[in-house]
Simulated scan of single mutants.
Amino acid sequence: MIEKDIFGIIHSMDRVTNYLIIQWNKTFNESLGISHILVLGHLRDNGKSRPSDIARTLGLTPSTLTHLSEKLVQKGLATRFTDDNNRRIIYLAITDKGIDLVRKAHEEGKSLRENLFEELSDEEQQQLLSIYGKLNDSIKN
């Protein structure tokens, strides 16, 4: 594939992703960004976690995670607590309110994606699914 084509694909993927993020931010009225939801999603899926582990997994800096987690704790979406055996170790955990918010965020995102992808025919959706499946398989390796 010609290098120009690869950059065209990357640019198109970025435009779609950016559009979805902008639309999600406009409709999701919780004064939280995508990064906050990613942290909450990590906590929901993995249980209590050390902030450094969350930062590493999500590709965030420790200082960014500190900022994000502070807002999540203030809003009652996550709690911060120390390890019973070593008080120097701090964990974050999601609250029931946080779980509900992640569910709401995912529903909003799903709705936005469905509206976008209804522009594609069934065959185009299957092609896109196949392409993304192949890309995801290569990422796992």
Rank of each mutant, 00 (worst) to 15 (best):
G47H: 12
G47N: 13
G47L: 10
K48A: 14
K48V: 09
K48P: 11
S49K: 08
S49D: 02
R50F: 04
R50M: 12
R50T: 05
P51D: 01
P51Y: 04
P51I: 02
P51H: 02
P51L: 02
S52M: 08
S52E: 04
S52H: 05
S52L: 03
D53P: 05
D53V: 04
I54L: 05
I54H: 11
I54S: 06
I54A: 03
A55D: 12
A55P: 13
A55I: 08
R56W: 05
R56P: 00
R56G: 02
R56K: 14
T57C: 02
T57R: 14
T57I: 03
T57N: 11
L58E: 05
L58D: 13
L58G: 12
G59K: 03
G59S: 00
G59Q: 00
L60S: 06
L60V: 04
L60K: 10
L60A: 03
T61K: 13
T61P: 00
T61L: 06
T61W: 03
T61H: 11
P62T: 13
P62K: 14
S63H: 14
S63I: 06
S63M: 02
S63D: 07
T64I: 01
T64P: 03
L65R: 15
L65A: 14
L65W: 14
L65S: 15
T66P: 00
T66I: 00
T66K: 07
H67D: 10
H67Q: 13
H67G: 12
L68N: 02
K71V: 02
K71F: 01
K71T: 10
K71N: 07
L72D: 06
L72E: 05
L72K: 12
L72T: 12
V73K: 15
V73Y: 11
V73C: 11
V73N: 10
V73G: 07
Q74C: 10
K75Q: 10
K75C: 05
G76Q: 05
G76C: 06
G76P: 08
G76W: 11
L77P: 04
L77A: 08
L77S: 09
L77F: 15
A78Y: 04
T79H: 11
T79C: 01
T79Q: 12
R80C: 10
R80E: 15
R80V: 11
R80G: 12
F81I: 00
T82E: 03
T82V: 09
D83E: 06
D84M: 02
D84H: 14
D84Q: 08
N85L: 07
N85G: 14
N86T: 06
R87A: 08
R87L: 06
R87E: 09
R87N: 04
R87I: 11
R88Y: 07
R88C: 00
R88F: 06
I89Y: 03
I90K: 15
I90D: 01
I90C: 02
I90S: 05
I90W: 12
Y91P: 08
Y91E: 00
L92F: 14
L92N: 10
A93Y: 03
I94R: 13
I94Q: 10
I94G: 11
I94A: 07
T95F: 05
T95L: 01
T95M: 05
D96M: 02
D96G: 09
D96R: 15
